[in-house]
Design a protein around this nucleic acid. Structure first.
Lengths: 336, 336
DNA sequence: TTGTAAGCGTTATCAA
DNA sequence: TTGATAACGCTTACAA
């Protein structure tokens, strides 16, 4: 592998000049520049990024911490972040936190130890306090799907409460009054906010919240089935079920169908997130669109702007979810 | 940030000794070792991985090139590779090739320019020749889901032909004789091999291959629907359809149902890969299990063994798919 | 505009 | 078992 030294020799200039040609920031005469470029070409020179990093104290790498490397939600997030960053010549180092405090800490430590220029994270188990403390360190931290008031300039978040509201409102608009709710784990702020939105929608339409129709799920398919089983076994009366994410909605639909419900006539179901397979289900699942890709892209832009000083305007920090009406919801027939 | 120099000063030893303590490979007296460890502790010393890389010519990073960062298939692959590698203190740099020749080349170049110690790739558009040439370079290359005879020691592959065979055989065993096939894009070797397996199963059971019942799909949901539409519109007679992956099977099922077929009684459908949502569909999709996670893990182990000289036995390079019987297939009723 | 030379924080070679 | 000291390949004052 050719080094900058060999290039400088062949071109008949100094190391520094070669470096200048590469970094385009200081002026070099066109003639010398061309000599250097030719020499590089001839030697097939490729700068050693490690040496560049050591000397410049920049690694051009951005750490990404997601809860899981699999699943449609994180897939979209990683894909959008990676492609935006890669287009700018930066690369991503990805690791998983598994929604677990210890592992999230370790993941962040790991990324910091790799000298990432910034870290974009989707953390669920770490407290605001911990993150505020951590962000006093050298590595700039950015948060997706989280709002921390003190660090609001580094946060990209979704208005989950509005999303929860929209889902329940859609059911109400279809005439449903007995609306069951299967929530996500309440230690996750998005799960809490979606639930709050649900309650607001009920309150706004003068529907008394019925504790019987609440089931505490865990965002996984099985808790969707279990939730529905719980409502049915207890003979609670309901014509619609709002699920805090699509996986649970899919579990609920599956259970309902296996127990003789015709969907959506006997039961309306709505999910949240709009993951890819929501549209593969039968009936296709109505849901709340979660603009993850856009949020990921925006996180990348934010890093490009703050850390790499790119000129980027129009940073949007809070995103709004929208309702997607599909075949799994229908007019309520029970109530007059 | 403390440097190795400050540690050496505080401990009253030379730089070299501190380095030796860190790298555990040469003997250091217990007494000096303890002094060094104490000094590190006291200063909160963290080695600078960039400097280590420059000096040692090892980055402890492994490049991963997948077709897409999203989707259940690649999600599982990345997750298994990352966790195995991370457990060994290595990190992954992930990028996407989008099944496109140019982009795959660029992706590899990019990873090489980042000085990855090895690259694990899932490439579809690059030729064997190109890869053979490329692997003469400095960076060791490993291939998942691909078999290149010349580089067989760096390949982890699935016996797709057996998989294709098993899928069709399952239909035959249920009494089906008119079996339609929706293939993947034939430039992809896995798609070709699955198709070959299909043909072998037919031949083995003396069923004449009927060209009418072949549809050339592209592994996407829509081509599953389109394929089924094609068969139906042309009034070809068939009681089963074998799809070269689960996405297409899901599209086929959707189309069938929307056109009045009762599944699986009117039509048996089988997929391939066993992606997560196959089990969410209704009816649950019979499929061929593709052990991606195990393959990813094995790729990581192979790198650990070859590149980082870990003692690892039992490297398995070829994996066998298995049949997963679920509700989307049933006994054929048309044929006596 | 160009060159000189001092880092950047390690590892690794060679003596002691 | 330890210590000097030269790499590793680049960036960046500072001088010219």
């Amino acid at each position: 592998m050719a080094t900058i030294y060999q290039v400088s020799e062949l071109a008949g200039v100094s190391l520094a000049t070669v470096s200048r040609v590469m970094n385009k920031n200081t002026r070099v005469s066109d003639k010398t520049k061309q000599k250097v470029l030719d020499a590089m070409e001839q030697l097939g020179y490729r700068p050693n990024s490690i040496a560049q990093s050591l000397a410049s104290n920049r690694t051009n790498s951005v750490g990404i911490l997601v809860s899981e490397l699999q699943g449609p939600f994180f897939g979209q997030m990683m894909a959008s972040i990676e492609s935006s960053l890669r287009a700018a010549g930066k690369h991503v180092i990805i690791t998983a936190g598994h929604s677990n405090e210890q592992k999230e800490k370790e993941g962040i430590d790991f990324l910091i130890s790799r000298n990432c220029d910034a870290i974009i994270m989707h953390v669920e188990a770490l407290s605001d306090e911990y993150l505020i403390e951590l962000s006093k360190g050298k590595t700039p931290l950015y948060f997706v799907n989280r709002h921390i008031e003190t660090l609001k300039n580094q946060c990209i978040s979704l208005d989950n409460q509005v999303g929860g509201y929209l889902a329940t409102k859609a059911m109400i608009d279809l005439g449903h009054k007995n609306i069951a709710y299967i929530s996500g784990p309440q230690f996750k702020s998005d799960a809490r906010n979606r639930y709050t939105g649900h309650q607001h929608a009920l309150a706004e339409h003068n529907i008394q919240f019925n504790e019987q129709l609440f089931y505490h799920g865990d965002f996984k398919e099985t808790s969707g089935s279990n939730g529905l089983k719980h409502f049915i076994d207890n003979k609670f009366s309901f014509s619609a079920v709002v699920c805090a994410n699509d996986e649970m909605a899919s579990g609920a639909m599956k259970y309902a169908r296996e127990h003789g419900y015709s969907l959506p006539n006997d039961l309306s179901v709505i999910g949240f997130d709009n993951v890819i397979f929501a549209n593969y289900l039968y009936p296709t699942l109505a849901t709340i669109d979660n603009p993850v890709s856009k949020m990921g892209e925006m996180a990348a832009k934010l890093v490009l702007k703050d850390v790499y000083l790119h000129k980027i305007e129009q940073i949007q920090r809070v995103f709004e979810p929208t309702l997607l009406t599909r075949d799994s919801i229908a007019q309520c027939v029970d109530n007059p």
